[in-house]
Design a binder for these strands. Structure first.
Lengths: 148, 148
DNA sequence: ATTAATATTTGCATTCTGCAAATAAATTTA
DNA sequence: TAAATTTATTTGCAGAATGCAAATATTAAT
């Protein structure tokens, strides 16, 4: 059988390129990491700084600075958490939501284009496979720690 | 149906983490990009600088400097190409080969652990799906340009 | 009331990045 | 063949990203 890692490497590289291409929305130009951060904030509901940083497996100090940038760009809002004043809750501003949704739409459009090269049956099979894979990676003890 | 992008995002993030974990081999500690470069040089046979940079969708100037570092670390060799003296051919030194193979082994071991959580049938299905996906991404006009 | 733990920020030094320009060699054009 | 164009690679530079150590502020534990 062919090299399993090779298959994954090719796939994730291509998907990474897709992601990279999706980072300029109208006037705003954001980096790949910033795109990931927006995505994560949107996905987790009312997360703290620490939570998002953990989920992205990012160093908290780097993350802190990225958030400062995103706040300055008016894409992210930091709200003090009354119950525990050490904590800040992150959320997307309307502009941030707009950018995130635009990126999401573009990504899904690209993915649809990719799936247009296969049958509906194949598409279902591929999606089922990826879901299964994600579940198994979540179960794995050895890797993929960050909670996601 | 659930969000297709979400599935991909989760999967590639986890695989990315795996990759990140696999970058320290014995004494040598290399970055994720450097690991990708070694992988790519090994995969393409006797590639030029430009070829590898293209394949990784990396800026050639950044790439050039990364190669300088890897040459200093004695992991990569640059050989002038007699037929066209503008070109340098890249190859792995024995030490580079060792590091690359160690990383490869570790990655495959991790992946095997992940696959151990599914049946043989499921594993086959997942691998077939990823292969199909790679083919379709290669066909896609809209993205994933870099040749790979 | 101290001490320890947690969340976040800043200082600093290193590395990464990518555009513009330089260099060098090959190819095309006139 | 000489000049102009293209291609491969390297350097200058300046900005961005990274991560460790230390600082700060707050909460939890003793």
């Amino acid at each position: 059988m062919e090299n399993v890692r090779e298959l994954f490497q090719v796939m994730t590289k291509r998907f990474g390129l897709l992601n990279k291409n999706c980072c300029s929305i109208g006037g705003t130009e954001i980096s790949l990491v910033q795109s990931h951060i927006l995505y994560e904030i949107d996905r987790l509901k009312e997360p703290s700084m620490q939570q998002v940083a953990d989920s992205l497996a990012m160093d908290i100090t780097t993350f802190s600075r990225q958030i400062q940038t995103l706040v300055k760009m008016n894409l992210v809002k930091k709200t003090p958490y009354p119950e525990d004043r050490r904590i800040y809750i992150l959320s997307l501003t309307p502009e941030g939501k707009y950018v995130a949704s635009k990126i999401d739409a573009e990504m899904n459009q690209y993915l649809n284009e990719v799936f247009s090269h296969m049958s509906e049956f194949e598409k279902e099979s591929v999606l089922r496979s990826i879901k299964l894979l994600n579940d198994c990676m979540a179960k794995s003890s050895v890797c993929c720690k960050p909670l996601f």
